[in-house]
Design a protein around this nucleic acid. Structure first.
Lengths: 235, 235
DNA sequence: AGAATAGTGTCTGTCAGACACTATAGA
DNA sequence: TCTATAGTGTCTGACAGACACTATTCT
């Protein structure tokens, strides 16, 4: 029966190890990057791992809180977008026994964290293309791959990539971020059609220079939800 | 740092309570139904709850195994389709403290379980429309609602609803199941186009009577993955 | 003027919706 | 023949892809 046994003991032996980790993405220098942390403890000491840790049942009200708290410890700011990716579990993925990791998938504009990250050397943006050449803790390589796939899918039918951009952004910037995420080019026209067909954005009066004609700036309207389109972009 | 503290103690005080629950759907008598279990223990004794329970770290290799094991205890068979829905967590959703529930979302043909279920009275298919008039344990009402939403979404861009049907099925049966799930009618023609455009199905030589002209039967090809379409049906 | 980027106009292609039409079984 | 369900033919509509064209800014 759900969530109970007859005499539940909170210290019951052989509970799974439960942790919360996050795959925080950003787009920087035209590359998709993940925030990784150099592990200071066993197991996998010295390897790169995802930021995360245990729930603090006294201060966290939900696991979302745990994810945010752990991310803020590493970046000093909260991501603009956070959603659950998936749980990864098993009796073989952690040498200490059966473990369960709830993985979140998050987005943030690069410049919101860069200044903080530059001052430490155990937290770093890793280019997704270099993951395979590094020593990665646990099954975090697989996890990152799953997260990347999800992000790429979402970029085809939603506007989530805007959360990799600063408050004000141009069509050109959004196009570039989307293209970096999905790894192929898209039609500028299609993007504009989508921007105009949703009610997610408002235009900013002041335009901005971009090497050519001044570009219209947009921002996400306050309090709007992400719109999902009923059709994918070229996939 | 992910998945460890300096001196991790598996019996550390104040770990969250971790359970695995499943929302098992079927379509029966033209209604979408969920498998619910009458709780025999506190908390919420006597209320209806989702089938689930604790991980058995000795026999389960992953949480998928936990979900399947718990479902088989109630139905005596394995569902045809199983995927993670979401984690629900918080310090307020269980009177015993911070709890984490990994919820799976599963599909099964009604006739595969009905004979077994009819012999017990603490396990039952509940019509989704009657959920609000029952006493439901924990936040399981909210969970079921989320699961229903996900199922409805999936029915618009994938063929998952076939997993509510027996091995051999007709277009008419599939159409009816989809319509029950999403709560509106769809075009028979659109469904046939989708069936023919994917490589998921094979036709069965023997046709079957259905009140009119004999109907072509289909089955899911062995070992195929679910196809996701790039467009939704009318939503 | 020429390069660079922003933005529009508009045609095509794909696929879902609509719905009339044909096919075939049983009463 | 009448009704019920299966299955086809085909037109329309929505929206993404393609790409030429115009607009504006800087050098």
């Amino acid at each position: 029966m759900s969530e109970m046994t007859n005499s539940y003991d909170i210290n019951e032996f052989k509970n799974p190890i439960f942790t919360v980790d996050s795959v925080l993405f950003t787009v920087k220098d035209d590359a998709l990057k993940v925030l990784m942390v150099k592990r200071a403890n066993e197991p996998f000491i010295g390897n790169w791992g995802l930021p995360g840790g245990f729930v603090d049942v006294d201060s966290d009200t939900t696991t979302d809180g745990t994810a945010l708290r752990k991310l803020e410890e590493k970046t000093s700011v909260a991501p603009q977008y956070l959603e659950q990716l998936q749980v990864f579990s098993g009796n073989a993925r952690d040498p200490r026994g059966f473990s369960v990791t709830l993985v979140y998938f998050a987005l943030i504009p690069a410049q919101e964290v860069s200044s903080h990250i530059d001052t430490v050397d155990d937290v770093q943006w890793i280019d997704i293309k270099n993951i395979n050449s590094l020593s990665i803790a646990f099954d975090h390589k697989v996890i990152i791959d799953q997260a990347k796939e999800r992000l790429q899918q979402k970029a085809l039918y939603s506007m989530v990539p805007v959360y990799c951009l600063p408050e004000y952004f141009t069509v050109g910037q959004l196009k570039s971020v989307i293209e970096t995420i999905i790894g192929k080019t898209i039609q500028r026209k299609s993007l504009i059609r989508r921007i105009e067909s949703t009610d997610m954005f408002e235009t900013i009066d002041e335009k901005v220079k971009s090497g050519g004609r001044l570009a219209q700036q947009y921002k996400v309207k306050a309090g709007v939800d992400i719109v999902n389109f009923e059709r994918n972009l070229s996939s």
